[in-house]
Design a protein around this nucleic acid. Structure first.
Lengths: 249, 249
DNA sequence: TGGCGCCAACCTGTATACAAGCTAGCGACC
DNA sequence: GGTCGCTAGCTTGTATACAGGTTGGCGCCA
């Protein structure tokens, strides 16, 4: 259950546990990074052949992904990468916004200088993408790393798990909208968020971390909303959040 | 082909989804109501035989329960109902306490007079248990119904799902401690909670509902803590929940 | 009698065979 | 030519055979 160890391949003693997690992570990333766009039909047989196992472990992973809402298995039809249901995801966004605050309200996890260095390195790697051609997948992967790193300072493990789960449920939205958005602005926003979080962490101010994340989260929602003009994706989310936050009526 | 003979409660018409859910709910309830006490070894073969299916669907359900933290499958050993790890569950309690508030901060679900009637009926059924001999399992089942009914007023589906999951993760603790606690006091507390929630619902005051639930939640934690004197189960939870920043140790 | 060792009976994890069902596409018929 | 119907080839769900491994008990030996 420990996510810390980065065991590369399947060790003989670890057997099924590591194998499952590796397969799960691989497929989840392929979906979340749009290597498998929504609507893609995944065949258990083909995946089993690709990874050199039988259908059984593949099925187990697919069931887990189905529980996560990333795929949907339909009898005699196939296992299909779910479409982005904005009506559903709006609720997830609203909840994520609330959960950000909880991180600061519960005991924090361990934080070392090494993590700061990692954030600095991450910021540089993001910056490096700024003036090249738009590479949404690379940026998405880096933001995923950023999120993963931030998860470490959530001492409450159940909270960390659901935060992670909801992140992966929604991360595809931004990534899919990215080509229609202003590349440099998105990169700049991410760099700024990383730096601001870094500074707040150095000051050991968890509340400020939450503030920063909330601010950027909402800004990102607004930018996405601009692209989705007419659909009013996140308006309701922001209203619901502001209402209870600013002035309890 | 043998599965048809045993089709008394699980009909085959509703594909696999209904079958899965029925099996999952059944086993989860058995665990949460302590029909399977912690440490119980569940055999896939025996369960498959009992429900008239093969190991395959049983395994799927057990994997889901493992994800929920209710069982743990160990190679060549068996699938074992998890022991109550208070250190882990403390975090779940702390999170549950926070999530109670979120219900009132997010759009509510539909609520009809029928639900009020259901709560009234539930209150009476709980009261009926008061002066008989202690029947922890019956009380636990009723509280589970209460929780399920309350879930309806959580409009945010992801929140409802995780609330439900965390509830089932922790419900065994109270149930296991129940025999050592004062029966009538527990019954009275539950009746009072149901009535208070009912009244707040009639007034359409979701915040008061959360207040009531939070109050009873904490009171229950304290009562459990008294029984667990020396282990300091929930002390930390309450301290963390009271909002003050916790210094990293 | 106490201790060591082996073996049989389980268990779960994996691979495979079979069942049921949907769909695309082709062929026959109007 | 257009439409209907059927079949072949997929798919997932289920059942079963096999592999690897642990455990408890029985028997043998000191």
């Amino acid at each position: 259950m420990q996510a810390h160890d980065r065991s590369d391949d399947t060790t003989v003693d670890g057997t099924s546990r590591t194998s499952f997690k590796a397969l799960y992570t691989e497929l989840r990333d392929r979906i979340c990074l749009l290597d498998y766009p929504p609507g893609t039909v995944l065949s258990e047989n083909k995946l089993a052949a690709e990874f050199g196992v039988s259908r059984t472990p593949v099925r187990r992973v697919l069931h887990a992904l189905e529980f996560d809402g990333l795929v949907e298995s339909k009898q005699a039809l196939g296992t299909i990468v779910t479409a982005l249901d904005l009506r559903e995801l709006k609720q997830v966004y609203a909840l994520r916004l609330k959960l950000i605050d909880l991180v600061a309200e519960l005991p924090p996890g361990p934080m070392t200088d090494r993590d700061i260095d990692l954030l600095d390195d991450l910021g540089e790697r993001v910056s490096a993408l700024r003036d090249d051609d738009a590479r949404p997948r690379a940026l998405g992967a880096l933001y995923q790393t950023f999120h993963q790193e931030l998860g470490r300072l959530t001492g409450n493990r159940p909270l960390r798990e659901i935060t992670d789960r909801f992140f992966h449920q929604t991360s595809r939205v931004w990534l899919q909208l990215l080509p229609e958005m202003t590349w440099t602005r998105e990169v700049d926003a991410m760099v700024e968020e990383i730096h601001a979080v870094r500074d707040a962490l150095v000051a050991q101010d968890l509340r400020r971390v939450s503030e920063v994340r909330r601010h950027h989260f909402r800004a990102c929602l607004r930018r996405m909303n601009a692209v989705l003009a007419g659909q009013d994706l996140v308006d309701e989310v922001l209203r619901a959040a502001d209402g209870s936050e600013v002035a309890p009526t």
